[in-house]
Amino acid sequence: MRLSIACARIAVQLAVALSAASCSNSVWAQTPGATHVGTILAAREPVNPVKEFVGRVEAVERVSVRARITGYLKEVLFKEGDAVKEGAPLYRIEPEPFQAALQQAQGALLKAQGQEANAAGQLDRAETLLKTQSGSVAVRDQRTAEYQTTKGDVLVAQANVQAAAINLSYTEIKSPISGVIGRTSVTKGNVVGPDSGVLTTIVSQDPMYVVTPVSQREFLQLKSEQRRAGGDVAASLTVALRFSDGSAYAFPGKINFVDISIDKATDSVLVRASFPNPHGQLIDGQLVKFSITGDKPEEKILVPQSALIADQQGVYVFVVEDGKAAVKRLKLGGESGANAIVDSGLDAGAQVIVEGMEVLRPGAPVIASPAKMLGRS
């Protein structure tokens, strides 16, 4: 009896094992060489679309310092790379020749003023003699002409004094703005003048501009968002920066200018934003990533950026269709956190492969599981 029961148990176990093997063979017969993948369902979510462009930092004020007179450079009065205040002396050109020219002009003015005084006295005497009939009209007219000539000489002499004083003031070149000064292109001992070119450059630091060309299509989208917001584009959009290493700039910006015409060569319009720069992180000429975010959420399909694959044709993801991996080419509309915003190419409800796609090929059989379940197994 005991032997009979044991045999029965063995028979049952064999039957169960054969049944399991049969089922397993049936699954693998349907998906030979299938790859286990983790998927998520693509769904529409409210997001604030972010449009990203490459922008260039520009100083609000930028001055190329030049010499306005020709002379011997006596001193360089600044340290390259330092901050300078408006009115700070930068260069000193030898002043002695210009002081001498000023004194010469002042002497000529005194001489002209003396001649004017003498001519005025001669004219008064001629007028007096004419009244007493002891003089003639011709003499009076001659004295009038002489007086007018000396008055003209005085005006010319005064102008010469003013010009000489201006030239003397140009011997000390001062900073016209506050900012950071660059390197000097000349050193003391050289003769400089208007033909010497730029001596140094000064750029303001706070605030700074960032300018970027925006395509006409994207610009029209921005204008559409402006109309929906019921205000101007500057008030309805948030502007942010990221540096080339991916780090975010701490201070948001504000759009303060949109160019009045489209660049025919690139079919784009120039947009400019102003950013505070209290710590000097933004440098004139620097390339940055310029992102514009609307304030009205839109329903968009999001996919994890880790699921994106790029090739020469663009960006795509793998999805599960009929138990196989299929390629979906995407048109992206920016980023939202760790996700990419899909403008077109993917429908809601699609099974997007986010794990295991490294070894996939289009048409390869797959066994799909929710990504979080796959991660726990």
Rank of each mutant, 00 (worst) to 15 (best):
G87N: 06
A240E: 09
T70V: 06
S169W: 02
I181G: 09
I173R: 01
A350T: 09
V198C: 00
M208R: 00
Q305M: 10
S169A: 09
K174M: 11
G231P: 09
R2M: 12
S134I: 06
V16L: 07
I341V: 15
A34G: 15
V139Y: 00
V320S: 07
D322M: 08
Q216W: 15
Q113Y: 03
L199W: 05
Q162V: 10
P252F: 01
L41P: 04
Q115L: 09
R227Q: 10
I93M: 10
P207M: 00
P207S: 01
A83L: 12
V303I: 15
R62W: 01
E52L: 08
A145G: 11
I93F: 05
Q13H: 13
A42H: 04
I283S: 15
E298K: 14
V84T: 04
Y249T: 06
D343W: 07
N118Y: 08
G135A: 07
N25H: 11
L18M: 13
G345C: 11
V16M: 02
Q113E: 13
S24V: 12
P194D: 03
S136W: 07
P97Q: 05
P46E: 06
Q106E: 13
N25A: 14
A83N: 11
G38T: 03
Q221A: 06
G81P: 08
N118F: 10
T144E: 01
V288F: 01
G193I: 05
V258Y: 01
G197C: 04
A350M: 09
A240G: 06
V37F: 02
S136Q: 02
D153R: 09
G55E: 06
I292D: 06
G81L: 03
A368M: 01
N256T: 14
A326F: 03
D195Q: 13
D195T: 13
A235T: 14
K372Q: 10
V211F: 03
R272D: 04
W28Q: 11
G363F: 03
V271G: 08
A108L: 11
D347H: 14
P176V: 00
I181W: 09
A340G: 12
I301M: 04
Q162H: 09
A163K: 12
L77C: 07
E52S: 14
